[in-house]
Amino acid sequence: MKWIATILLILALLLLWRMMFMGYRGRALQQKKEFPRPLGSRDWKGLRDAVDGVYVSTTDAENALDRIAAHGLGTRSAVSMGFVAEGVGLLRQGARSFVIPTADIVGVGHGPGMVGKWMGREKGLVVLRWKLGERVVDTGIKPRHPAEGARFAEQVEELVRTKDQQKPTDGSGGAQ
């Protein structure tokens, strides 16, 4: 009689796991319609000033609990983040690598955590805020060494500052 209960429990757990998997997959398929696929780099060998760490996730900037599942952006992985010609490169192991174009970077900051990883320290994660299509998202990375993460964040801040200074200020946008 115990073995029947054990088999029923195992089947119930497998069914529950399957339902969770199908729900996440459905969410990713739905979000693929909302979010464009992030760019890839043409030259990952050119990744400079790389900082190793853990890619935590990408979430909607307005709703920190809304993980973006499309295009593998919700998949936790090891990462080397650095700079490539196109912008900030996230070279991931076991998940799709991508580039945040310089023009799409809104800002950078630090946080104690986000969906998928909570550090409890004020500056535990480096959080990149950027535009993915029409939406603003946050990508969290836990650097292996906090000092390297702080240095990287300063470099991104400088990149954003430089980008903002290069924008035309006459309102014409450079087009005629």
Rank of each mutant, 00 (worst) to 15 (best):
V115I: 11
F152V: 05
K163T: 04
W118Y: 14
D52I: 09
G107W: 07
G40Q: 05
R129V: 13
G94H: 02
Q155L: 14
H71I: 12
R67C: 10
A28Y: 08
A5T: 08
G171R: 01
Q31C: 06
I7A: 04
R151S: 15
M114E: 07
T59Q: 09
I105T: 04
D138V: 10
T139E: 06
T58H: 05
A150N: 12
K167C: 11
R135C: 05
D104Q: 14
A175H: 14
G26W: 01
V51K: 15
Q166C: 07
Q176S: 15
A12E: 01
G133C: 02
D138F: 11
D104R: 13
R161H: 09
R25G: 08
R135H: 11
V54W: 12
G140W: 10
G120W: 15
G89D: 06
L90S: 01
T58Q: 04
L128G: 07
V88T: 01
V51N: 15
G120Q: 13
V108Y: 12
S172P: 02
T58W: 03
R92Y: 03
Q155V: 05
G124R: 10
H71V: 11
V160G: 10
E134L: 08
Q93L: 04
V160A: 09
M1Q: 01
T169Y: 03
G26E: 02
S172V: 04
G171A: 04
A64V: 12
E86Y: 07
L39C: 13
R48H: 00
R135K: 14
P36D: 01
W3I: 09
Q31M: 03
W118V: 14
R161M: 03
R144Y: 07
F98T: 05
L132P: 00
A69M: 06
V115E: 07
R96N: 01
H71A: 12
A50R: 09
E158Y: 11
D104K: 14
R161V: 03
M119A: 13
K123Q: 15
H71C: 10
A103H: 01
A85S: 09
V54Y: 13
R48G: 00
T139Q: 06
A85D: 09
G116W: 07
L29A: 10
P38E: 04
G140S: 09
F98I: 10
E34N: 09
T139S: 11
E148P: 10
G113I: 09
A12H: 01
A5K: 11
A175R: 15
R92F: 06
Q30H: 13
A103Y: 02
G120L: 14
P101K: 00
M22N: 12
A153I: 00
D164F: 09
S80M: 02
P36V: 00
L128I: 14
K32H: 06
